[in-house]
Simulated scan of single mutants.
Amino acid sequence: MAITLHKGDLPAGLSFGSSVAVDSETLGLNPHRDPLCLVQLSAGDGNAHLVQLDRSTYDAPNLRALMADPSVLKIFHYARFDVAVMQKYLGVVTTPIYCTKIASKLVRTYTDRHGLKDLCKELLNIDLSKQQQSSDWGAEKISEAQLAYAASDVTHLHELKAILDRMLAREGRIELAKACFAFLPVRASLDLAGWPEEDIFAH
């Protein structure tokens, strides 16, 4: 696996094909308080490109263009958070989207374990290390261990999508999943606007 670190933005002309796996690292789980630090991407070829953002400007036009490109499917695990932080800090509405966590919840109803580590273990027989999950992503220099961790969060998403797609088809839930994915940018906007917990559909 090759890991390439880019400072500030993706290089011009870099193509990920028709679908790209995406994840992000922040300084916490509150999008209004905790800034976006890193975005990692993979074409599903075992390699990863990591963008360490300039938090003084967030000037990343190539990354923003990719996130908004309607011809490239963005594959996330728990897209709701990543889409919200990229909307907040990069000013981009990400679309179209596939979320492996939502797909898992729609078809793996026999369990309540829908984390990426759980999916990789059951569906791919891969044991992901989460040791660097809570490390300092705002540091000027990202460690080799952090780079490896960040890359591992995107290099398996294409494989997981393929398996989950077969399960969605088997259970007749593909269209339901598509509708959930299409709603994610709105869900992210609601989170940012102050409705992260309240169910607006409730009585």
Rank of each mutant, 00 (worst) to 15 (best):
A2C: 14
I3L: 10
T4Y: 03
L5C: 11
H6Y: 10
L10E: 05
A12Y: 14
A12K: 14
G13L: 01
G13C: 06
L14S: 01
L14F: 07
L14Y: 12
S15Y: 14
F16D: 06
S19F: 06
V20E: 03
V22P: 01
D23F: 00
S24Q: 11
T26S: 07
L29V: 12
H32V: 04
R33V: 09
R33C: 15
P35W: 10
L36K: 07
C37Y: 03
Q40M: 09
G46Q: 05
G46I: 04
N47Q: 12
A48F: 10
H49D: 11
Q52A: 05
Q52D: 00
Q52Y: 03
L53F: 00
L53K: 00
D54Y: 00
D54E: 08
R55Y: 02
S56L: 15
T57G: 09
D59K: 09
P61C: 09
L63C: 01
A65P: 08
L66F: 09
A68G: 03
A68P: 06
D69E: 06
P70D: 02
S71E: 15
F76C: 07
Y78I: 13
Y78D: 14
R80D: 11
R80Y: 09
F81C: 10
D82G: 08
A84T: 07
A84G: 02
V85E: 08
Q87V: 14
K88E: 11
K88I: 06
Y89F: 12
L90Q: 05
G91V: 05
V92D: 01
Y98Q: 01
C99Q: 02
K101S: 08
I102C: 03
A103L: 02
K105W: 04
L106F: 02
L106N: 11
V107M: 01
R108L: 11
D112E: 14
G115L: 08
L116K: 04
K117M: 12
D118Y: 08
C120I: 01
C120Y: 03
K121W: 14
L123W: 07
Q133T: 10
S134F: 15
S134G: 15
D136P: 06
W137C: 10
G138Y: 03
A139R: 11
K141C: 10
S143N: 04
A145R: 11
Q146V: 06
Q146W: 08
L147W: 11
A148W: 04
S152K: 10
S152T: 09
S152H: 06
L157T: 04
L160W: 02
K161C: 00
A162K: 07
I163T: 03
I163W: 13
D165W: 08
R166G: 11
M167N: 10
M167Y: 06
A169C: 11
R170M: 14
R170L: 15
E171R: 09
E171G: 07
R173Y: 02
I174G: 13
I174P: 09
E175T: 14
L176W: 13
A177F: 02
F181A: 04
F181S: 01
L184V: 09
P185A: 03
A188F: 12
S189W: 14
L190T: 12
A193T: 12
A193C: 10
W195D: 13
W195E: 14
P196A: 09
